[in-house]
């Protein structure tokens, strides 16, 4: 059942944030297509063995961000709108990760071209090029 969510306890990232991130990623990579149903709060809570309120909190955030929408009586679905977030918001969210990447690459003494190459590869793997539809 999609999406294949896993959560980790004891991490600095709160559980609801982990759910939000993973669903966003699944939607962004095309693992989940617009119109795909996502599990109900209760189903997901029982599957992950977490408090339903946590799931509800994550879903509320996703809905606020426009990643999912609820259709009364039918459940919740991935939306097809992608750029719900403003550019600046997207930049704000990616920035800490970029900082960390830069920090690590300096520490590990990787040269810049190597880093760029690897980044491109990684982006290709998660399907950054516009969705062709058949990718797993």
């Amino acid at each position: 059942m999609k999406p294949n969510l896993t959560i980790k306890t004891g991490s600095p990232t709160p559980i609801y944030r982990q759910i939000v991130d993973q669903i966003c990623l699944a939607a962004a990579t095309g693992e989940m297509q617009p119109g795909d149903a996502i599990p109900s709060v209760r189903t997901l809570a029982e599957r992950l063995v977490i408090n339903p309120n946590t799931v509800a909190k994550a879903y509320n955030e996703l809905r606020r961000d426009g990643v999912i929408e609820s259709q009364p009586g039918r459940g919740m679905f991935i939306t097809d709108k992608r750029d719900v977030l403003t550019k600046s918001e997207r930049v704000r969210r990616i920035q800490p990760l970029l900082d960390a990447l830069a920090e690590q690459s300096v520490m590990l003494d990787l040269d810049n071209s190597e880093l760029h190459k690897r980044l491109d590869q990684a982006l290709k793997q998660v399907g950054k090029p516009p969705a062709s539809g058949e990718k797993p």
């Binding site: 306890t9 559980i15 209760r42 809570a45 029982e46 063995v49 977490i50 408090n51 309120n53």
Partner: peptide, 27 residues
């Protein structure tokens, strides 16, 4: 415990030392 919360009015009050459990289920 998650199963029990299916009943909306059910309240769970539990003591524990295991923070990972608390993180998963506690409000």
């Amino acid at each position: 415990m998650i199963y029990v919360t299916r009943e909306k009015r059910c309240t769970i009050f539990f003591s524990s030392h295991l923070l990972s459990d608390v993180e998963r289920v506690a409000d």
